[in-house]
Amino acid sequence: MKNSIFAVAATMIAATGLHAEEVLPTNVAFNDGAVEQSLSGVAGDAANGRIIVGDKGQGNCVACHQVADLADVPFQGEIGPALDGAGERWSEAELRGIVANAKIMFEDSMMPSFYKTEGFIRPGNAYTGKAADDTFGPLLSAQQIEDVVAYLATLKEE
């Protein structure tokens, strides 16, 4: 009886993703710019991804890209390509790679690397006048990347 209870518990944990391990920014495996493996091990939430894309305090994707679905967000940028149809132009793995570090796929991209913690020339530690330290994390968390990817995958040409 105990063995069957443990088996059911293990199955439930596996089904809910509680066993999933987050991929650290330094361990992301790129394949021609694409990232096949989920960074969080948990499916992305497209509704939260939509918020992140349009929120100037989070992803701020609209600073450079236009998104018709976010017409209520003012002052959308024109530096990057429009994100309408992104779900048709790129696979989920390609979208994940682009959001994590676009420079891997598009060498001359001006897009910031949202899931990178090394290889930067760091300015000082905020406005303290002190040198940068090791507390500089990625711009977005692994789950936020997955949420943005889930949202971008929903964007189809109309």
Rank of each mutant, 00 (worst) to 15 (best):
I98N: 04
E158Y: 00
D133R: 11
S109Q: 02
G124K: 13
Q66S: 08
P74E: 01
R50N: 09
S141R: 07
A142H: 05
L39Y: 05
K156L: 05
G54V: 09
K2F: 14
D32F: 11
V73S: 03
P123Q: 08
A132F: 15
N3C: 02
E88L: 03
F106Y: 15
Q76H: 06
G85A: 10
I52A: 08
H19P: 00
R50F: 10
T154P: 09
I5A: 14
S113P: 12
A153G: 08
A150Q: 09
V23W: 03
D32P: 05
Q143N: 12
A102G: 14
G49E: 08
L18E: 02
D84H: 04
S38A: 12
I121C: 01
A82E: 05
Y127H: 05
T128A: 09
F136S: 12
I121S: 06
M110G: 11
V149Q: 01
S113I: 02
S109P: 03
G137M: 07
V99Y: 08
L140V: 09
F136V: 15
N60Y: 02
A34T: 12
M1A: 15
L39D: 09
A10Y: 00
T154K: 11
E158L: 04
K2T: 14
L140A: 11
L155Y: 11
Q144I: 12
Y127R: 06
F136C: 05
G85N: 10
I79C: 00
T128E: 09
K156A: 13
V149L: 05
D108Q: 14
